[in-house]
Design a protein around this nucleic acid. Structure first.
Length: 271
DNA sequence: AAGAATGTTATGTA
DNA sequence: CTACATAACATTCT
């Protein structure tokens, strides 16, 4: 269940157990690991999250790249060889700690140039302190592409998935179909800050929580922790929620809170 | 038990 | 070339 918060939380949790240690890298159920096992026995030097990507740097310069895709997960446990749970693709282990990664969409060893190429494709990561908002804004403010699509484009900014996108737009009372170029700068700044806040809550709690943090609802099942995702009625105004297909995923909008942008009579470009 | 799902990329079409 | 939509892939949950 990965958006950026899942990956950053995993990096934060795993780092102290792995960095500076020699790791066994294996595929305990014999699943294809795309060269990851070549890193077996090397010392781990870094564990870093970039958007939804996790990179383990190894002595010698090569990295292990994991991407959880739609339903990948991590299982961490004390001890060197716990029973694998579910479909484990790769296992990273020291003598007293084991991380299993289940069902990732990417699990591969990268050379330094390949790693650099990957990082170039990833837009500013809201969960990294040095995230460059100007870079994201440069892509957004001149684009005709709808906000609902731009927010999920990992090369524009990284870490946001379908749920955060949907919730963020609802919170900001912005319609997902609003073209990026019609997005006012102050609204962008506010959304950027809100996104960081929500993602940080996600890292702390290990779950997507967009209702009031610390509330009772925040501890309940998924549908209670979000405001509008997969809801039929708007929790703010009671209006009906409309479903949109955006970038192949379902977005939810209250058009009473966020009126649809005017699509009529586009003015011809002068140039 | 079928279908949807917190994701991405490659390919097809206009 | 662009901007889309669609398919494909990995697995788990409802």
């Amino acid at each position: 269940m990965p958006e950026g918060h899942t990956i950053h939380r995993a990096a934060r949790d795993q780092r102290p157990h792995l960095v500076g240690r020699r790791l066994s890298v294996s595929s305990p159920q014999g699943r294809f690991a795309e060269g990851a096992e070549a890193l077996d026995g090397r010392t781990c030097e870094s564990v870093e999250a970039y958007g939804k990507h996790l990179l383990y740097g190894f002595e010698g310069g090569r990295s292990l790249h994991l991407h959880l895709g739609l339903y990948g997960r991590f299982h961490a446990a004390r001890g060197p060889s716990p029973e694998p749970r579910g479909a484990v693709r790769v296992r990273l282990a020291t003598l007293d700690y084991t991380v299993d990664c289940n069902g990732p969409a990417a699990c591969e060893a990268l050379d330094p140039p390949e790693r650099a190429r990957l990082l170039l494709r990833i837009g500013p990561d809201l969960l990294r302190a040095d995230a460059d908002a100007e870079r994201a804004w440069a892509r957004i403010h001149r684009s005709r592409t709808p906000l609902g699509v731009l927010l999920m484009d990992q090369s524009v900014l990284s870490g946001i998935g379908n749920i955060y996108r949907t919730e963020l737009l609802w919170r900001a009372r912005l319609h997902p179909l609003l073209p990026g170029r019609d997005f006012p700068r102050p609204a962008f700044d506010a959304l950027w800050d809100d996104a960081r806040r929500l993602l940080e809550i996600g890292v702390e709690t290990g779950a997507i929580v967009t209702v009031e943090a610390g509330s009772k609802a925040a501890r309940r099942p998924f549908r209670d922790r979000v405001e509008i995702m997969r809801k039929a009625d708007c929790p703010r105004c009671g209006g009906p929620v409309r479903e949109l297909d955006m970038a192949g995923r379902r977005a939810f909008v209250c058009e009473r809170c966020a009126p649809a942008p005017d699509t009529s009579a586009p003015v011809a470009d002068a140039g």
